[in-house]
């Protein structure tokens, strides 16, 4: 983490992104803003976590980066090049190859009628990323080996595997494309507790080996703390706080972040039983003053606030820092 501060290369940059859907059900036509003015950068080599609850727009935003969802306004840049909107055919293919996705539900995201060999080779076929048949098979074998599966699995079908194995097939199929950025949409929440750790370890290992960058979408802060370098908290389509992981866990400022942190269940009965819940309630807040925006309060620590709130947060931060300095 230390050398990151020196020369950080921005890999992906999200600028003023709004994503709205037409909601034609019910009376009249309503536009539902799933993502509101999102702004953040992802640096090469880091794991950037996007944390929010259901309906927060985190998946919508992740899919917009993969260009499955269209933006209403704003731009997304990948390696300095704009990838939102219309692209030339070569650029389009290059972006498809460079940004890969790991899905939440491995059972739903694998083609049940195709062998594992085809599932993993699919991307290779599409981009002709192999010299000859031999080379393709070698690549598939290596991808399987990288995720801890055996060559004998190639002729099997997805339904013959356990959830954890299937998720590793999903990872192998993304990795074989040699992508630069991987959007992982809740990759472990559909898995059984006993195998989650294995998938997390694997993702960390592959990141180190291949110099990957992750956008890790999650609803669970406890997982995110282990895996990510920086965290953005998203609430009802709005990013309310961005900070480095330890900074966010030590000095959360936005009340929603605090409530989310307090809700993480800890595997310790004494701690858990004495815990006080912090319920986030928008209605009780003092919203006076000008409109809030996402502003930088400490280097790398952004919070969604107006100027009056910024002053309050600053005071809280100073107090916390003073307390820590004493210890």
């Amino acid at each position: 983490m230390s050398n990151k501060t020196n020369e950080k290369e921005v890999l992906l940059s999200v600028r003023n992104v709004d994503i709205a859907f037409d909601n034609k059900t019910g009376i009249g036509k309503k536009r539902f803003r799933a993502v509101k003015n999102a702004n953040f950068d992802i640096y090469r080599g880091e794991t950037f976590a996007l944390v929010g609850e259901s309906g927060s727009g985190k998946t919508t935003l992740g899919r917009a980066i993969l260009r499955i969802n269209e933006l209403s306004t704003g731009e997304i840049y990948f390696k300095g090049k704009k990838i939102s909107g219309k692209l030339s055919k070569e650029d389009d293919r290059e972006v498809i190859r460079s940004i890969q996705m790991i899905f939440q539900d491995p059972a739903a995201s694998l083609n049940e009628r195709a062998t594992i060999e085809y599932c993993i080779s699919e991307g290779l076929y599409n981009f002709h990323l192999y010299k000859d048949e031999e080379d393709r098979i070698a690549k598939v074998d290596k991808a399987l080996h990288d995720v801890g599966l055996l060559p004998e699995h190639k002729s099997r079908y997805p339904h013959e595997f356990s959830g954890g194995q299937r998720q590793r097939v999903g990872i192998a199929r993304a990795m074989i494309m040699e992508p630069e950025l991987i959007v992982a949409d809740e990759p472990i929440s559909a898995l059984d507790v006993s195998i989650r750790a294995q998938v997390l370890n694997l993702m960390n290992k592959l990141k180190d080996d291949k110099g990957l960058t992750y956008l890790f979408i999650a609803h669970d802060l406890s997982v995110v703390r282990f895996i990510s370098d920086r965290i953005a908290v998203i609430h009802l389509g709005r990013i309310v706080e961005i900070a480095e992981t330890e900074e966010l866990f030590k000095h959360p400022l936005h009340p929603y972040t605090i409530s989310l942190l307090s809700a993480v269940p800890m595997p310790d009965p004494r701690v858990e039983k004495s815990k006080k819940l912090v319920v986030y309630d928008d209605s009780g807040r003092d919203l006076s003053g000008e409109k809030p925006i996402l502003q930088e309060i400490r280097p790398g620590h952004f919070v969604f606030a107006n100027d009056r709130e910024m002053k309050e947060y600053d005071a809280i931060l100073k107090e916390m820092e003073a307390k820590e300095a004493k210890q």
């Binding site: 498809i96 899905f103 995201s109 694998l110 083609n111 699919e122 991307g123 599409n126």
Partner: peptide
């Protein structure tokens, strides 16, 4: 629109395939 087709799209699979 099932997820595995979305996954194929992310891998650049053509409509015909």
């Amino acid at each position: 629109d099932r997820e595995y087709n979305l996954a194929s799209r992310c891998l650049g699979t053509s409509t015909w395939t």
